[in-house]
Design a protein around this nucleic acid. Structure first.
Lengths: 347, 347
DNA sequence: TGTTAGCACTCAATGGCAACAAGTGCTAAA
DNA sequence: TTTAGCACTTGTTGCCATTGAGTGCTAACA
């Protein structure tokens, strides 16, 4: 539907716009790219491309910038896999190679490295643990008034929380609760456990303990932690650099949106296989109109699906970035599977 | 040294400048304050105050703004304790009343509340734990490959860390290490423990275990956590509001300075008794020239000294803010002492 | 029919200029 | 010692002309 020449014009405009960050005019296009045509011809073609919706102007006599449709077309049909800088590749592998203590830390490190390599904002979502089972509670007495509660799942996820015992509570009561938890909850899936905590367990605890409320709140906290611990965002401050005209209010809104962590999974959305690119308005959130999001779901056998994503300006160098995200997708899948096998083998 | 009239002019200028954020001229001063003199008289007085260094101009024909010396004089001699808004007082007490799980959380909550009440940036530094003693290590096996290491001090401070065991390690080796730690380190002060970890302990571990390096790194992490967990900063984003002309680079520098957490104790400085106000250049850091810091050290019997501080614009309403910080100083002292007694009583 | 040179036109950006407002310092009189 | 008055300074605002980059369109050309 587009001619060869139109395609190379579109490509060149996109490249030059990411390079210089300014609308591209017909003359610049001739100087900076190898298109064999006069400026007038190019202007004509640009009119066509604009009519078809691939380009737009910032004002009536300005050069052209790619529209969202233009980027969409570019990403869908014109991007070819870009070779990842060997240095970058090495530093990714090396960073994920370190001896880690937790799945969580691998997930976090990947966000750190991705944001650092790109100078954009990286979002890393650990693999789902919802269908994992609670294999054990531990109650570790620290001193006479303090207690650490630890929760372990069969997928190796660990969460802990400290707790100061109310003065009125005696050891017998506590022992009862421990037994209760082990009988009622261990072996169930986290979803079931969560449901129980909201329904029948509080009642059971109340029968055994006078000051039950704190106890229940404690477990709510613990599960909340387990849910939010999975999300890591790095390089939020980079937004101030790569998004030229972002007013402070917008910045603050976005920043706190990311602090909330609740709405983010929504943003990351559908978790299709492969790599998804969402451009500007496609993100369906006014705040992100100037941004694009490259997100990749990665499958970890037996553990579930995680997401690694990169937020940058709409004018980012897509092919390079897509390849980079792809590397993380593969590496995370590999590393986490290895990690899970390590834990599982020894059972 | 200053006449009555000069004092009330200085006061009024300071108040009007915090109120409107703009240089104060002689006419505004007459309209907005109850000084019985003509504009000309006031201008003369302003010349004197400027000669003495209490006021300055932004340009040759502008109104006056207070200089650092001016603020200094104001804070030292003219500020009278301001009644704290009963609502604020109530919400502080209520927030610190909640059943907490850790010293740490009380410290953190205080920063949150202070920053929220003021719309400035709050820094909260938990009481020193350096002279506290290690009362116990716990090694809690989670599954065949994972282990949680917990460290408890006599002051009720708890730190934990997860750890994935190297495949080659067998249970006997681990047991040896546990015994080793309990024999060598428990009962010592944290400083001694830290020193041992850097000197003789690594050697000891190496004698018992083949893969000692990870093990040692683990404990380094644990102590690092214990050291940085004490600092909480809230409301950094507020800087964007209260500091009108802060360029983005400065903002980022300050923000990351606060992330580092290393330099902050230095900033909080000498920890004199009572409440200290440092204004602009007095903070001795170019980045903070536009800011003032109100900091209060609070003593907790047997636990040590903590600091609660408030960072805001040099033109902040000092008397109100100083009183507010004072409330936190008292409450934190009270709450933490109660907390420590709770733990200690049961020994 | 597609391509190109040429030209009139548009619009953002820049700099100079005048008008204005807010404020000062100084002088001279009360 | 205080105050009214006035000349002076400086930042801000709006206006206008100029410039430059770029466009669309027309007419000539291959």
């Amino acid at each position: 539907m587009l001619t060869e020449r139109q395609i190379s014009i579109l490509k060149s405009i996109i490249h030059l716009y990411t390079k210089y960050g300014q609308p591209v005019g017909s003359k610049t296009l001739i100087q900076e790219s190898k298109i064999a045509a006069s400026s007038a011809t190019i202007r004509n073609e640009m009119v066509h491309l604009e009519e078809m919706g691939f380009l737009k102007k910032t004002h009536s006599s300005s050069g052209r910038i790619p529209s969202i449709t233009g980027y969409r077309y570019y990403v869908d049909y014109l991007v070819h896999p870009h070779k990842v800088d060997p240095e970058d590749l090495a530093s990714i592998k090396q960073a994920l190679e370190n001896p880690f203590k937790q799945i969580d830390e691998i997930v976090m490190t990947s966000a750190e490295v991705l944001s650092h390599l790109t100078s954009y904002t990286a979002i890393s979502l650990g693999p789902e643990i919802k269908d994992s089972k609670l294999t054990g509670f531990r109650f570790v007495p620290l001193n006479e008034r303090q207690l650490m509660v630890i929760l372990v799942t069969d997928k190796g996820h660990v969460e802990s929380q400290n707790f100061t015992l109310p003065q009125q509570m005696n050891p017998y009561e506590l022992e009862k609760v421990v037994r209760l938890f082990n009988e009622e909850l261990v072996g169930k899936s986290l979803i079931e456990v969560f449901r129980s905590l909201k329904t029948d367990v509080p009642e059971l605890i109340r029968q055994h303990i006078r000051t039950a409320e704190n106890m229940i709140g404690l477990f709510d906290d613990l599960f909340l932690k387990a849910a939010t611990d999975r999300i890591h965002i790095e390089g939020r401050m980079n937004m101030l650099d790569y998004s030229n005209d972002l007013n402070i209010e917008q910045f603050k809104s976005i920043y706190s949106l990311m602090d909330g962590k609740h709405d983010l999974p929504m943003l990351l959305g559908s978790k299709q296989e492969g790599i998804t690119v969402q451009i500007g308005k496609e993100l369906d959130n006014e705040l992100f109109e100037q941004f694009s999001l490259i997100s990749a779901a990665y499958e970890v056998e037996n553990l579930g699906t995680g997401v690694i994503a990169l937020l940058g300006p709409t004018s980012m160098p897509y092919s390079k970035m897509i390849s980079l995200v792809g590397v993380f997708q593969k590496e995370l899948s590999k590393k986490l599977e290895a990690y899970y096998h390590d834990i599982d083998d020894n059972k």
